[in-house]
Structures are given as C-alpha cells and as structure tokens.
Design a protein around this nucleic acid. Structure first.
Lengths: 206, 206
DNA sequence: GCACGTCGATTGACTGGTCAGTCAGTTAGC
DNA sequence: GCTAACTGACTGACCAGTCAATCGACGTGC
C-alpha cells in the first residue's frame, strides 16, 4: 500500500520536495511572497538552501507549483459540479462549497493563492491568467445553462454573473484571511449557503 | 481662484509633488509596485531621483499617499450616499456608481489601489486595513438600515452582504483591469445597474 | 564479503547585480 | 544672502541563484 516501503529504490524516506512546498505555504502565508527569502523556505523546511534549487528552478517556480496544484483541483471541481444533473443553483452551491472547504481545510494555502496569485494578476498571476479565466468561464457556463432552462433570469450577462459570484466568495475568504470578519467554524457552513442565497435570491425579500 | 497664481510665495509654478504622484500612478499601474524602481518614477515624472525623497520619505509613502487620497473620497461617497434619504437600494446603487465611475475616470489609479493595496492587504494594505474595514462597515450599515425598514431580508448578516457586494464590484473592476472581460463604455453604465440588480434581486427570476 | 565506481541527493559559502535611500552639492526665488 | 527646490553620483544592504564539494545508497566484479 505505502509506495515508500515496498521496493523503495527511488523515493527517499521523506519527500523533501513536498517538505519544501509545505514549508513555502507556511512562509508565504506568514510573510507574503515578496518578503520571504529562499533561505526562509529552506529553514522552515529544515533543509539546506541549495536543495530548494535542486527541486525548483526558482523561487517563482515554487509558488507556481503551489498554485497549479490547487487550481487544477478547483477547475476539476467546477466541471464536476457542472456534470451532475443538479439544478443550476445546486451547481453553484457545490462550487461555493468547494472553495469554502478548501479554505477551511488549508487556510494558509488558500491565502497564498488568493493574495499572491489570483489577486496579483499583475506581477505574478499574469502567467496564470489563462487558468484563472478558465474558472470564470466554467462558472459562466453554469449560469448560461441555468438561463437556458429558465432557472436564471436572462437579462444578466453570464460572464458578469460569474464574476460577481466568484468575487463575492473571494471577498469572503479575504475577510477571513485579514480578520475583517470572524472565521469560526459555524460561519463556514453558513457562509456556503449565504453566498448562494445572496447571488440567487438577492437581498430584497421575495 | 487658482491658488497657484495670486500670492504664490510657496507653491512652485508646476507642482512637482503632484507630478511625481501622477507619474507613480502610471508606473505602478504598468509594472506593479514591487517591480518599479524609484528611478522609474523620477524618470516618468521628468524629475531628478532625489526629488522624490524631497517630497516623500520612502517609495512606500508614495503609494500610501495615492491610496489615502482616493480611499477617503470613497469613504466620503459612501457616507454621503447613506445620508441621502433614498431607498437602501438606491444607496447601494450610488456606492456602486461611485466606484465604477472612479474606474472609468482613472483606471490606472484604481488598478494600483485595488491590486497593490486593497488586494494586497498582506504586505502593504496591512497599514490601511482600518480604512478598508471602515468602508465595509459603512456599506454594512446601509444594509442593516435596509433590513430595519424591511427593504432587505433579515436572514443575511449585513457584514456578509457588504462583503459580497463590495467583492462583486471589485471583481468586476479586476475583470476589466486584467482584460478578462471587455471594458467598453457601454459596459460601465450597464455594470452599475447589473451589480445592484444581482445583489438586490438575485439571479433567479422573480 | 569487500573494494570500488556511479549518480542522485544534499550541503552552504560565495558572487554578482540590483536598488532604496543618502548627501554634498547647485540653482533660483525673494 | 537666505532658504527651499532640485540634482544625481554614490553606498551599503540585501538576496536570488551558482557551484564545488560531500554524502550515501546501490550495483558490480572479484
């Protein structure tokens, strides 16, 4: 079962590469990408400076890796949600749930991805703009399909709705990240619902 | 009328300080804060390197100044909107309009503020977190008052609604900034309405 | 069983380039 | 001739990335 134990001729007992990535998450989250030195990552990982460059071409590539790893899961989750035969509203709920759960499960990683990549589409995110755009488009597709079947009003541009939806969620995470709003566990479950309620039902009473 | 001409014993004929700030907006917008050297700002302003340090204590202070200048206008606009006796929905519309207009009027400045401060609340925005929070709270107050008078549903936390609302708008601007969605003039007018429609009426047909 | 060779993993001192910020001056208005 | 505006060469710190050296697991031949 454990791939390490059987005929481990290649993999070292501890995966130093993983160790470096995990350390990077913590340090990036704590200090921000620009303020962390490669030596900080190495120290946090309990590893020599040079080893970081054995596994990664540059400091940027470490962040790259963290982003791609996680974002591909998000893309998969959105498309998975779309493939279920659920109502459009349920699909959106699934997407919201995935993102909120991601934060719940690993807030530091999500902080890094949102602060250093998604919202830094200038400097860094530029490289990943295509991936980010893909997420917006997949959500927009869910909205468009919802309009098709009459579940959503047709006078709102799907791309537009998609941006608002994603923006609302990301802002929520930002609120937790920067402690603008409290992030207790009760809030997580509640948050998933409320985002969907807000976007689908709106603020005004029905 | 012009404060420069009359008994101008202090202000130079051209306000070099302003010139530096305006140049900084352009350069920050183009290259991002971290990637711009102080010499880039000086060059863009057509001014000697040292003069930047005559007017500002540090590179950070230049960005600081740009943020505070603009954000105080936003805070004023939100509170102004709140003071009008309009419906809660109209108040939110006024806030959305102000932000969208700000972008329309000076996209580069808004790009800098959103990308380098608001969304970088880690490194840089930390200093301004209090100001940013104040904006959220003022919007939340509008929502809370709306609930009071029965214009908004009461089962949504006002802070929460405020974050969603602001997040939706900011994501929209980000879409324009990073050219994820086209930013033609028609869109600006339409965008103001749609954000409010989305948040107040929701995606589902009424 | 042992000596030796190979090769990836690992180490950390060092270098080269980059810039923020300083400062000793020069200019110009009054 | 005083003061504030203005200049730009210089410096000190910082740090990403390099590299030569060491370690250690494993195979191979004897």
């Amino acid at each position: 079962m454990a791939p390490e134990t059987s005929k481990a001729s290649k993999a070292p007992p501890v995966d130093k590469r993983r160790q470096i990535l995990d350390a990077a998450i913590r340090v990036f989250a704590r200090q921000g990408f620009h303020a962390t030195r490669v030596s900080d990552i190495a120290d946090e990982a309990g590893v020599a400076y040079g080893l970081v460059y054995h596994y990664f071409r540059s400091k940027d590539e470490v962040l790259d890796e963290l982003f791609v790893e996680r974002w591909s899961l998000l893309l998969a989750a959105i498309e998975e949600a779309d493939r279920t035969g659920e109502t459009p509203r349920a699909k959106l709920a699934a997407v919201a749930a995935f993102i909120v759960d991601s934060y719940h499960h690993n807030p530091e990683l999500m902080k890094v991805i949102i602060v250093e990549v998604t919202r830094a589409a200038n400097s860094f995110g530029r490289t990943h703009l295509e991936q980010i755009r893909r997420a917006y488009q997949s959500i927009a597709k869910i909205v468009a399909d919802g309009q098709e079947v009459g579940a959503f009003r047709r006078d709102v541009d799907p791309t537009f709705a998609s941006m608002s939806f994603y923006g609302a969620i990301e802002q929520l995470l930002s609120g937790w990240i920067f402690e603008v709003i409290p992030g207790s566990d009760g809030n997580f479950a509640q948050a998933k619902e409320l985002v969907v309620t807000m976007i689908c039902d709106g603020l005004e009473p029905r």
